[in-house]
Design a protein around this nucleic acid. Structure first.
Length: 922
DNA sequence: GCTCTGCTAAGAGGA
């Protein structure tokens, strides 16, 4: 049986004498997971969950050492015992003990950890930089997968090398040279596979169950690159291949020993554990060392083959789970490994120097020792604070994984995390050995899944069913996917990724440990930013914009441009970049979202076109095909191609535009710039901003901290942007753009007074005076009197439900008809509501060409007329109303008319909202 | 309580 619960107290470890001799045991008080009893539900009491004791025997006491009260514990194959009238549990010989099973540990993390826990930590901090052995290793793996799927060797090599043209170019490699290297490794594999075909008894192979068989295209008993997620063991990873249910791991290094390396065995054992959970019974694993060739005949065995089979006993599997427990417990406790946890010898370690430097700089205890002076105390405090915050974000990603099995399909769909009830249409083999899968959507349900995304495609359940990582090629009434295996897909789940978390951590690490002293002095407020004198006039009709460009161009360290709604910050950025380009500088243009990057890039291209200074081919957009807007695709850097040609295109680019996440990629980390301009910087976390500015000598941040802050999952230090902190810390480095080109004066008044000290003003009289009358075919006289003013308030009592309001929705439908009758085009009308539920309520009653969305999603755009649905009756309680920046965004979207729809009694309960009411009714 | 974008995935190796 299976016991799971929360550790309810201190754990006691002791030694006892048994009939088998001395044994260790640990007694863990555990509050079992369970349902509320009827009595508890009936009474008003807090539910009291059953508390019991679980005895962990022998080596599982090691895991017990790390356990702390509050942690979750799972014991498989436990036995039930009666002890003094109480039911207790104990491990048996077949038990596994898992600490914090929802903490999903990567197989590679365990592999690093077994080598040295400190190595695991270093890897997490800074990632693996671009280097040839790693890229080659990846290529060989891809070719291996292709061979298993029946693709021709030469065709595979050519295609895979071509795909990585950019990376190879940056490494200074040629396609021919790399192809030759890959061929050498791949031939060893091919030979071995050929041998297997001759000797393998296929009838035996097919006699086993099993579902993997019928899906394997090339050879019945193989499956390549299988993604595995274990809810029991809290491990996830991707096996290179699975043969007859057993893991096969490919290593492109050399190993002439008789036995596989221990860490390789551990890696294979992780996959074996997960395969067992999925119904297999695994007792062997295979490691393929592709550099072993005939010339390197193993002296002990005379072996020629690259393959080493080894048996996987229960002892190894349990050891692996204990390793994983140690890692998980340390992460949950927030501790930093020192290296003393393991037995590795530092003098043999490749990372010894790095290890000592990092330990020295961060003043961390380390087995390897420390080199150099620690960074200042405030920087170390910053590091620890942000390390914790980023790790909290990582935990949130782990919870997303846990939801794959904790929530049922309908809940996932309601959460927009899955598309369910698909009707499988067909599977079609593609030339490269992959598969195209098609399914029909049976409902119009929405989800956050988009074209180009990675998803878990399954025939029912993303973890327990047959599932595969797939790419969405097309998503309309039909879904088209590509995947390695032909799953009969009926459901798609968002695949959570730690990628951005990893990059945030690396960006923060790089900023602190690789940043110049000067840069850090500025970031930590120890030095004021300096500026060169620039006398050129860049923009002659807007003093603040001109000053902003002057500061950006003249900055030696940084400049901060505060751009309230409609003040032309995108234009200002474009002008500043043009000025820098004219001075011969290399510039990075970045922002958090792809949309913001493309907007800024569009403005820049317009500038450059009108002034013809540089060729458009010296502007490069780095990003995925699905992320980059259609009209910016011509500028997108294709990664595939001839290495030399690819790298030239990138290196010659004078302006490179990419999201901050992409700035943290290995390719971008190889690039250096004179200046980095970051748009919408108030929506970026500090480490997120660092990913971009780390690449440049100086930086310019552009944003508005009076609009919405960064989106983070956990509540932590990441919610304040670097932009906001620096604006407060270095007011002299900042400029506020104070002339807005969007709103009628009456509309702008409240936001200006409330959020911008009254400093925001219309750029010109024509802007101040704009009304709906300016639009072709529209006459305000055709509107009822109470809607003729640019700002109006429509009083609706509301229906008192929490996240929707049908009365407001109905009134908004009427309003839209009224405006249409007065001559307005539907696509000039926008409707904003705080909650998504209200957004769908309104959308369902309104024509498609009226844009209806949440405040958050409206940020960055504008509309002729905006109708706001407050969706609150009687009171304004709720976090959504507490952040006044949200109301600022909502009120500053319209150009010519703003209509507020809501219950005045609710608005009157809050001082800011009651001033809003006063203004709207004036 | 609510809002909610990024990103090829993870794993590639050295001796």
């Amino acid at each position: 049986m299976y016991v799971r619960g929360t550790v309810a107290g201190e754990v006691e470890v002791r030694t006892v004498s048994t009939s088998y001799g001395e044994s260790d045991l640990a007694e863990v008080p555990l509050r079992l997971e369970g349902e509320e009893s009827e009595a508890e539900a009936a009474s008003d009491q807090q539910p009291e969950y059953e508390t019991t004791t679980v005895t962990l025997w022998n080596k599982w006491t090691e895991s017990a050492e790390y356990v702390e009260p509050g942690m979750e514990l799972l014991v498989t194959n436990a036995k039930e015992e009666e002890y003094q009238g109480e039911t207790r549990y104990a491990t048996t010989g077949d038990s596994y003990v898992v600490v914090e099973p929802t903490f999903l540990v990567n197989v590679t993390a365990i592999r690093n950890w077994v080598e040295c826990p400190r190595l695991y930590y270093l890897n997490k901090l800074s990632g693996v930089p671009l280097n040839y052995p790693v890229v080659k290793g990846t290529l060989v793996h891809e070719v291996f997968g292709d061979l298993l799927r029946g693709r021709d060797l030469e065709e595979s090599i050519d295609a895979r090398v071509e795909e990585r043209g950019l990376e190879l170019g940056l490494l200074g490699e040629t396609a021919e040279g790399v192809a030759e290297d890959v061929r050498e490794n791949a031939q060893a594999i091919e030979g071995w596979l050929e041998q297997g075909r001759l000797t393998e008894d296929d009838s035996e192979a097919t006699a086993d169950d099993d579902s993997t068989r019928e899906f394997s295209p090339a050879e019945s008993s193989w499956r390549s690159e299988q993604l595995l997620i274990s809810e029991t063991f809290g491990i996830r990873g991707r096996a290179d291949a699975v043969r007859r249910g057993a893991p096969v791991e490919l290593k492109t290094g050399k190993n002439l020993k008789k036995e596989p390396r221990f860490k390789d065995k551990v890696q294979a054992a992780c996959y074996a554990l997960m395969l067992e959970e999925h119904g297999g019974n695994v007792d062997t694993g295979t490691l393929l060392y592709t550099k072993n060739s005939a010339l390197d005949r193993n002296e002990e065995t005379g072996d020629l083959t690259p393959a080493k089979d080894f048996s996987m006993g229960g002892g190894l599997l349990k050891f692996v789970v204990r390793l994983r427990n140690e890692l998980a417990a340390m992460e949950i406790a927030g501790d930093v490994p020192t290296g003393y946890e393991g037995s590795a010898k530092c003098e043999y370690c490749f990372e010894q120097d790095t290890c000592m430097v990092v330990s020295g700089r961060l003043d961390q205890e380390s087995k390897a020792g420390q080199i150099g002076q620690p960074i200042p105390a405030d920087e170390r405090e910053y590091f620890e604070r942000f390390y914790r915050a980023i790790e909290e974000e990582r935990r949130e990603v782990h919870h997303e994984y846990a939801k794959l099995w904790e929530q049922d399909a309908q809940e996932r769909a309601d959460d927009d995390r899955a598309l369910i009830d698909l009707e499988f249409v067909e599977k079609r083999p593609l030339e490269e050995g992959r598969w195209e899968l098609r399914a029909k959507r049976t409902s119009g349900a929405n989800s956050k899944i988009r074209e180009g995304d990675f998803v878990l495609a399954s025939d029912g359940h993303p973890v327990r069913g047959n599932s595969e990582l797939a790419t969405i090629e097309r998503l309309d009434e039909e879904v088209v996917l590509t995947a390695d295996e032909p799953v009969e897909v009926t459901r798609l789940d968002v695949y959570p990724s730690e990628l951005t978390t990893d990059r945030l951590l690396a960006a923060m690490h790089d900023a602190l440990l690789k940043g110049t002293e000067r840069r850090k002095d500025v970031l930590f407020g120890r030095t004021d930013p300096e500026f060169d004198t620039v006398s050129e006039i860049f923009i002659d009709n807007n003093a603040a914009q001109n000053e902003a460009v002057t500061k950006a161009v003249g900055a030696r360290d940084c400049a901060l441009i505060h751009g309230p709604p409609g003040t032309g910050k995108t234009y200002t950025i474009a002008r500043a970049i043009r000025a820098m380009v004219e001075r011969g500088e290399r510039v990075l243009l970045s922002a958090f979202t792809n949309r913001a990057v493309d907007n800024a890039l569009e403005a820049l291209l317009e500038q450059l076109e009108n002034h013809g200074e540089i060729d458009a081919d010296r502007v490069v957009r780095v990003g995925s095909e699905s992320g980059v807007r259609e009209d910016m695709q011509p500028y997108r850097l294709e990664r595939a191609g001839d290495p030399e040609d690819r790298v030239e295109t990138l290196q010659n680019a004078q302006v490179v535009a990419a999201t901050t996440a992409t700035c943290g990629s290995r390719v971008m980390k190889e690039q250096a710039f004179d200046a980095a301009l970051v748009d919408e910087a108030a929506q970026l976390t500090e480490p997120g901003t660092c990913a971009a500015i780390n690449l440049a000598e100086r930086f310019v941040l552009v944003g508005d901290h009076e609009q919405l802050p960064p989106v983070v999952r956990a509540e932590n230090d990441l919610t304040e942007s670097l932009f906001e902190r620096l604006v407060n810390c270095h007011p002299d480095a900042g400029v506020m753009l104070d002339r807005q080109y969007r709103m009628n004066q009456r509309i702008q008044a409240f936001a200006s007074r409330e959020f911008y000290d009254g400093k925001l003003r219309p750029a010109e009289p024509a802007v101040a005076a704009r009304t709906l009358d300016d639009l072709a075919g529209v006459s305000r006289d055709a509107l009822p009197e109470d809607l003729q003013d640019p700002v109006s308030f429509v009083d609706v009592d509301g229906d008192s439900s929490q996240y929707t309001d049908s009365e407001e929705a109905a009134r908004i439908v009427d309003l839209i008809e009224t405006y249409e009758a007065a001559g307005l085009e539907r696509d000039d009308i926008g409707v904003i509501a705080p909650f998504r539920a209200q957004v769908s309520e309104i959308s369902s009653h309104v024509p498609d060409d009226v844009t209806v969305d949440t405040v958050d999603r409206f940020q960055g755009s504008s509309q002729e007329i905006i109708i706001v649905s407050f969706t609150a009756t009687g009171t304004l309680e709720g976090p959504i109303f507490e952040d006044y920046r949200r109301i600022n965004v909502a009120l500053t979207r319209p150009k010519r008319a703003l209509v507020l729809v809501g219950d005045p009694n609710a608005l009157a309960t809050d001082p800011v909202y009651s001033r809003l009411l006063e203004w709207a009714n004036a």
